[in-house]
């Protein structure tokens, strides 16, 4: 091909680089995509601020109102101080992560950008893998940072009432915050890839996360316990909890494994459909 006399000069052909598309480049490209839209910043700022703020607020309110607190609440604090620090922030923060995860994939379709993406990386499964890795790692890192920051903020706030120290017995609860958020983000990303519709996918994930996961508890009998335990977000959430819910049938790490398994199965389905469907 003509190089020196190209009409695209002053752009010389060699500037276009050489070599082949490999996975590292896809990772870099997906990282560029994620960091170059505002919704990422909005969601992550909401996550960080809400989580850290609540990690301070509720311990603070507890300390200030200690005398009026019910014996039950007082007992609960001594039993599970970390849950009192991270729990509230996690409930609001998970919403931000879920919505962002959905947007990472579904907004490619609503904007039509998926066409550009697939022209550049027609190996669709590799593209999905790159996207998944970049986003999951991002949430994992941010999740762990805010988990430990929030923990230290809460610990300082609680100092007059109870001293909370990290040890091998409870570090999982703090570490679990980032683990849970990262898996939830990936789960939401997959839901977005499956449904390819922002509003639909957000509805689906919110319904599962906030409504169905709770309503399942009302199903009586052993079936109810199974459904409750193996519902993906319930199964995953216990990685952050000191005590397992009464109707929970497996251990924290097993629960997290169940959540990961759900995510993996849906990921495989999303990859299959991505290859099969017209973009």
């Amino acid at each position: 091909m003509a190089a020196r006399d190209s009409v695209m000069t002053p752009i010389a052909t060699r500037d276009a680089g050489t070599g082949h598309a490999h996975f590292g480049r896809l990772l870099l490209a997906e990282w560029t995509k994620i960091r170059s839209v505002r919704s990422t910043y909005w969601s992550l700022i909401a996550l960080i601020i809400a989580f850290l703020f609540f990690s301070w607020l509720f311990p603070y309110l507890t300390v200030v109102n200690w005398k009026q607190a019910s014996p039950e609440q007082q007992a609960n604090l001594y039993l599970d101080p970390i849950g009192s620090i991270t729990g509230s922030g996690l409930f609001i923060g998970q919403l931000a992560v879920a919505v962002l995860g959905v947007m990472v994939t579904a907004s490619e379709y609503s904007t039509g950008m998926i066409r550009s993406t697939l022209l550049a990386s027609p190996h669709r499964v590799r593209m999905l893998a790159a996207k998944s890795i970049v986003f999951t790692l991002l949430i994992l890192v941010i999740g762990e940072v805010i988990a430990f920051l929030g923990f230290f903020i809460g610990r300082q706030t609680f100092k007059s009432l109870v001293s909370v120290d990290l040890n091998s017995g409870n570090v999982r609860e703090v570490f679990g915050v980032g683990l849970y958020l990262a898996m939830l983000g990936l789960f939401a990303l997959v839901v977005g890839a499956l449904l390819r519709h922002v509003a639909g996918a957000i509805t689906g994930i919110v319904a599962l996360l906030l409504v169905i996961s709770n309503l399942i508890q009302l199903i009586p009998g052993r079936i109810g316990k199974y459904l409750y335990t193996y519902e993906p977000t319930n199964a995953g959430f216990v990685i952050t909890a000191k005590r397992l819910p009464d109707n929970f049938l497996i251990s924290s790490w097993q629960g997290y494994g169940v959540f990961a398994l759900w995510t993996a199965v849906l990921w495989a389905l999303a990859a299959y459909l991505l290859v099969r469907r017209d973009a």
Partner: peptide
Amino acid sequence: ARAVHGGRSAFNHLLYLAQTQGVP
């Protein structure tokens, strides 16, 4: 049809495409 995310700058749109191909 448009194949661009409206919230992203023109530069970043081309940048991620370039990165997939090892284009400087």
